[in-house]
Structures are given as structure tokens and as C-alpha cells.
Simulated scan of single mutants.
Amino acid sequence: MSPGTDGTLHVPARDIPLPTTVSRAARAMMTMVQALPAAKVPPAQDLDAWRAFVSRRGDSPEVTRGMALACSGFVDTGVKAEVEEIQDAGAIVYAATPEGLASDAEQVYLHVHGGAWVDGGGPAGRLGAVFAAGSLGRRVWGVDYRMPPEHPFPAGLDDCVAAYRALLRDHHPASIAVGGISAGGNLVAGMLLRLHDEGLPMPAAAVLNSPVADLIQAGDSWRTCPAPQDLGEHVRLYAGGHDLREPYLSPLFGEIPPGYPPTILISGTRDFLLSDTVRMHRALRTAGCRADLHVFEGAPHGMFSGQAPEDHQQVAEVRRFLDEVWKDSQS
């Protein structure tokens, strides 16, 4: 390892073993994921190739379940949920109510799935809402937002804002929490800026699980923990020609507004979005907001797809945080 004259650190090629400091299940999941062939990502301008790319996975129950776990950030608790498709929310919304929930429960979680802006919707989004409801023990609204290549920015963000507006018809903002993972975290952070700009009340809490907060990819971990595929093409496809520094696209370039809700942020030491997450955490702390940061040992982007004890620990932290904030908002 040697420094260059410009401060660049030249690291010799080396093998990085699996961490011994994580669970056996986590190591098994990492081994399986690393053995998968890398997907060839089309150029952003080739929309036909992207249409083929987003339809490549199929819709088998196994694929749907795996996608729902990977793109929701939650786990399968085995809790069943009744799912209703909301017809007048301004977007496709799956309302999942977990079994055993008290009929007078007021709290609701607006969930925005991840998937690099092109995956995680449809049946996977519906099942992801079920996993979120079972994990949190609360009613969940899962937004099946519009995605590229047919619907680039700001269509997905518009859908999230529309769903939040619909929630406000029947819910006090103090009973609402919002959250998302990866691209979903990006949409949630952008949505919170939009809520302020449009004069809408802020929710009680937010969950930013490994959010994409800076689309120009300036953060250090973009280089120290390389992404599994070229997300630059995903970014350009989603942005649709807009300036990547626009705050609704890259929330780190925006100003944290007054009244920003208490926020929990999640990442891992092998997450290529660790820098985006910790920079967002620092921006919130600098603005005087409550922001709780949890970085999990050895965890790659998205943790371990709901298959390891660490995933359950992460979900328990989110549930504890939301329960605490909701309790404080009622006192």
C-alpha cells in the first residue's frame, strides 16, 4: 500500500476473506451472493434493452419472495397480513394489516421499496408490504411507485408524495412514519424535502435504510466497497436527463428543513452506500435533528436479505425506534 503524490492510496490486489465476526447464516448468504454471475446492465439510453432487463427475473414464488426480502429491508416473521389495494391514493398502494392488530391502532408506516429504481414492485412490492407489517406489528402502506424505463424521475417521487397526501386524509401526521431502503431510501429522503416545500406536515419518524443520498457517487465507500454492478446506468436511467445534484434526486445537496422527523439510518461495514448513509446522518445531526445511526459488522448493501440473525436485529432496532418515537409523539 503506497500513497500517490496527489493523496490517492494505491492498494495492491489482495483477497478479502469472509468476516469471521458475523453469524454463520450471514457468511452463507454472502457466499451465495458472491457466487452469482454479475448481471450485464444496459446503457441508460437503450430503453428496449432496459425493458428486457427488468423482465428478466420472472415471477415465480421463489423469485418474488427473494425480491420482496431484498427490496423491503424487512424479514419474514411468519405473521400473516390482510392486503387491500387502495384505489384512491394517487398511486398503487398495498395496505397490509398484520393479524392481531388492534382495531383502534392508529399508527401506519408508509413503505417505499428498493431495487435500484427498476425492481421490487408488483407482486414483490405487495409481499414486501406484508413482511414490513409483520416485522413492525403495524399497518403498512406499500407504495408500488412507477419506475423506469417507462417512468423516470420524478414519476416515482410524485407517487410517494401522492400516497402520503392520501394518508393525511384519515391520519394525523404524528401517527405516520415513512421509510425505505436503497433507492426507496432515496425516494423517502427526497419526499421529505418535497413535503416541506409543498407545505405539508412532516411525519412522526423516518427510516433511511442504506439510502442513495448522492447520485454523483462522491462518497468514499463507493470506491472502498464497490457496488455489485454498474449502478451509474441505473442512476442515469432514473434521472432521465435531470441534473444529478437536484436535491429531490440527491437529498444531500438539499437543505435539511425545519421539522425534519427523527430518523433512524441503517448501513453495514461492507455497504457501498455506507458513505451516503453516514453523510446523511451527519447532515441531520448538523441541522439539529434526532438521527440514530446503526452500522452492522460485515454487512453488505441490504444486509443479508432477511436470512441472518443480523437482519432480525436490524428490524428490531427499527421497530424499537418507531415505537419510541410514536410513544413520545402522543405524550
Rank of each mutant, 00 (worst) to 15 (best):
residue 202 M to N: 03
residue 180 G to C: 12
residue 193 L to Y: 08
residue 183 A to W: 00
residue 194 R to I: 04
residue 170 D to P: 04
residue 185 G to P: 08
residue 193 L to Q: 13
residue 183 A to M: 07
residue 174 A to G: 10
residue 193 L to F: 08
residue 182 S to G: 14
residue 195 L to Q: 01
residue 202 M to E: 06
residue 203 P to N: 11
residue 186 N to I: 12
residue 201 P to H: 10
residue 185 G to N: 10
residue 192 L to R: 01
residue 169 R to I: 08
residue 190 G to C: 06
residue 195 L to F: 03
residue 178 V to G: 00
residue 190 G to I: 05
residue 199 G to V: 04
residue 181 I to T: 15
residue 191 M to S: 02
residue 176 I to Y: 08
residue 182 S to N: 04
residue 173 P to I: 08
residue 191 M to N: 02
residue 202 M to D: 02
residue 194 R to T: 11
residue 174 A to D: 10
residue 178 V to I: 13
residue 182 S to Y: 00
residue 185 G to C: 13
residue 200 L to K: 06
residue 193 L to P: 02
residue 199 G to N: 07
residue 181 I to R: 09
residue 178 V to D: 00
residue 177 A to K: 05
residue 176 I to K: 08
residue 203 P to F: 01
residue 198 E to Q: 15
residue 202 M to Y: 00
residue 172 H to W: 12
residue 185 G to Y: 08
residue 200 L to W: 01
residue 170 D to I: 05
residue 181 I to N: 05
residue 191 M to C: 11
residue 172 H to G: 06
residue 183 A to H: 06
residue 203 P to Y: 05
residue 175 S to L: 09
residue 171 H to P: 06
residue 171 H to M: 09
residue 199 G to D: 06
residue 203 P to H: 04
residue 196 H to V: 12
residue 177 A to F: 13
residue 184 G to H: 10
residue 179 G to C: 08
residue 192 L to G: 02
residue 174 A to P: 00
residue 179 G to M: 06
residue 196 H to A: 15
residue 202 M to L: 12
residue 197 D to G: 14
residue 189 A to P: 01
residue 193 L to H: 14
residue 178 V to Q: 00
residue 192 L to Y: 07
residue 204 A to W: 00
residue 176 I to G: 02
residue 173 P to E: 10
residue 190 G to N: 06
residue 185 G to L: 08
residue 193 L to M: 08
residue 188 V to F: 01
residue 179 G to P: 04
residue 184 G to Q: 04
residue 169 R to N: 14
residue 169 R to W: 05
residue 173 P to L: 10
